[in-house]
């Protein structure tokens, strides 16, 4: 687990903390107006008189959500990079692997429940649009060994990490109340990112020439419209569960086939585990 806790902390915790702080702040203010009322879900017959609890499920709702994501990249661009393993020299052996990227998803959605008063199956249908933020990317690690220097070892190790930020305007349809499923499209706008290269060169082991050496370089590059596709179309699907009326968890999958401006390109599948806070207006 080379990218275990360190990566999770680096890529998700700092983002999640901000938005979860928001949840806590909002929830504390909401809790003041919340009594010991029983939960009411659309499509279910209330067991008690609704009273002021009717406001808990409403026509207009605002969802705020955030959480960590795991991004998997695939596509022709990975094959293109694999070509670099063919060094054409017997004494230079190269190989590598692509790793999943720990990202982040968050945003704000305005959701309407058009048949919320009917208290039947139709009342479980809702639609939402809003603004959604994705942090995604991919990691390529590969190494070259110059076996001509044996018995000394001579390794060159690379790590290229693409991290990009995208804002989308999802248009989604949801069905269900306590358990719900949803799907829709998400036009995505690239808003920035960076590519980091870490390069290590090391000569060591048995009698390296003149004692060997150990060098490391880290380069950061800005991603811009020169290399990144500014507008792409993503597809979302998710499943959620409201564990209390104003809080829910959701597993959201985003699929996008555009990343770079030029071919070969990347495909992304990003699975996000989201915590959702809902204001019922």
């Amino acid at each position: 687990m080379q990218y275990g806790f360190k990566s999770i902390f680096r890529y998700t915790f700092k983002h999640s903390l901000l938005v979860w702080l928001l949840f806590v702040a909002a929830h504390s203010s909401f809790a003041a107006s919340k009594s010991n009322d029983e939960e009411v879900w659309p499509g279910k017959t209330p067991r008690k008189k609704l009273g002021n609890r009717q406001k808990a499920v409403s026509f207009f709702n605002i969802d705020v959500f955030a959480g960590p994501a795991l991004n998997n990249a695939s596509g022709d661009y990975l094959k293109f990079q694999e070509q670099y393993y063919q060094t054409g020299q017997d004494y230079l052996i190269a190989g590598g692997e692509f790793k999943n990227y720990f990202g982040f998803t968050g945003g704000l959605a305005f959701r309407i429940v058009p048949f919320w008063k009917k208290m039947n199956k139709l009342s479980e249908l809702s639609a939402y649009a809003g603004i959604q933020y994705y942090r995604r990317g991919f990691i390529h690690e590969f190494s070259m060994e110059n076996v001509a220097t044996r018995p000394a070892s001579d390794f060159t190790r690379w790590k290229e990490s693409y991290s990009s930020n995208h804002v989308s305007i999802p248009i989604m349809f949801r069905y269900g109340s306590k358990f719900h499923i949803e799907a829709g499209i998400a036009p995505e706008i690239f808003v920035g990112g960076n590519m980091q290269q870490i390069i290590e060169r090391k000569s060591f082991g048995t009698a390296p020439f003149a004692g060997g050496f150990d060098e490391k370089e880290v380069l950061d590059h800005e991603l811009s419209g020169k290399t990144m596709k500014p507008l792409t179309l993503g597809f979302n699907a998710g499943i959620g569960y409201n564990f209390i009326q104003e809080f829910a968890v959701k597993f959201l999958v985003n699929y996008n086939t555009g990343y770079f401006k030029q071919e070969p390109n990347l495909k992304h599948i990003q699975g996000s585990f989201l915590l959702i806070y809902t204001w019922h207006q």
Partner: peptide, 8 residues
Amino acid sequence: VDLELEST
């Protein structure tokens, strides 16, 4: 960041 990436 250091430089704008020119190529993928």
